[in-house]
Design a protein around this nucleic acid. Sequence first.
DNA 1: CTAGTTGCTCTAGCGACTAGAGGTTCAAGA
DNA 2: TCTTGAACCTCTAGTCGCTAGAGCAACTAG
Lengths: 137, 137
Amino acid sequence: MYSIGELSRRTGVKVPTIRYYEQARLMKAPERSDGNQRRYGRPELERLAFIRHARDLGLAIDSIRELIELSGHPDMPCADADRIAKEQLASVRERIARLRKLERELERIATCCTGETVGDCYVIRALSDHTLCRNDH
Amino acid sequence: MYSIGELSRRTGVKVPTIRYYEQARLMKAPERSDGNQRRYGRPELERLAFIRHARDLGLAIDSIRELIELSGHPDMPCADADRIAKEQLASVRERIARLRKLERELERIATCCTGETVGDCYVIRALSDHTLCRNDH
DNA sequence: CTAGTTGCTCTAGCGACTAGAGGTTCAAGA
DNA sequence: TCTTGAACCTCTAGTCGCTAGAGCAACTAG
C-alpha cells in the first residue's frame, strides 16, 4: 500500500495533481488509513500511469474519462477509442500547421530588424502594419 | 467616433475582449459619451489592431504591454523589441517540436488499431503500456 | 516521546478570455 | 415625442489543468 507521496514519487505526478484527478473523477476515491490518509495499490498506480500518458499525448480530461470508461468494458467495440485518438491526432496536426505559419512570420519579423531605435524597428513596424505580413493569420 | 460595437466590427475583436484589454491596461480608457458609453477614434483602432496582431502571433499580454510601452518611445534602442520577438520565435519552435513528437506517437497509436473490441484495441493498450511507445514524452 | 515530514481539506490564483445577470442608453420608426 | 429593441454599462463567475497556501492532523525515525 502506497501513500499519496509514494505514488507521486513512483509516477512523477505531483501530489496535488493526484488529488485533482480524484476530484475530476479520473481516479476513484482510494481506501483510507485509520487516520484518513489515502492508500493506493498497484491498480491505482497503473491507472495513474495511463492518465499521465494520455495527458502527455495532449488528451483532455474528458476524453481520458471516456477512455477509462471504455477500458472497463473489454467486450465493447473500440470505435470510440479510435475516434478519440484520431480526433486528437487531427487537432495536433492543426496546431502544428498554425504554429508553423507563426514561425515563418516571426522569423521574418525577428531577423529583419536592422534599425537601431524603436522608431525604425522592423519588429514594431510589422506589428503595427498588417500589410507587411506574408500570410494571413 | 466609434462605439465599442463598431470598433469590434471593424477589428474582429469581440466586445468583451476589448473591455478585457482595457482592464489589462493594453488599451487606455477611452472617452465616454454623455451616457457613459465608450467612444473610440482612429488611434484606438490602430492600437487594437496592433494588439490583435501580436496576440495572433502568440505573444503574451505582458509582452504586448512592453511593446506598446516601447513604441511610445521612438528614440530608444529597439533591442528589447528584438529580444521579445526572438524569444517568442524560440518558444514557437519548441512547441512545434513537442507537437511533432506527439503527432508521430498518435499516428502510430491511431492507425494501428486492427482490433474489434476494447479488449484488444491498440489505442487503449498503448495508453496502458508505456513500453509500446517509440519515443519519450 | 518528540520533532519533522507528510498528509488532510478548503480556498484562491494563473492566462486570456467568455457568459450571464440586471440595469441604462442609444437610434430609428410611428 | 414616444416607444421599442438593440446595444451598452458594471460586476461576478466560469472555463482548463493544474498550483500554491493556510491551518490543522497523522505518521515515522530517532
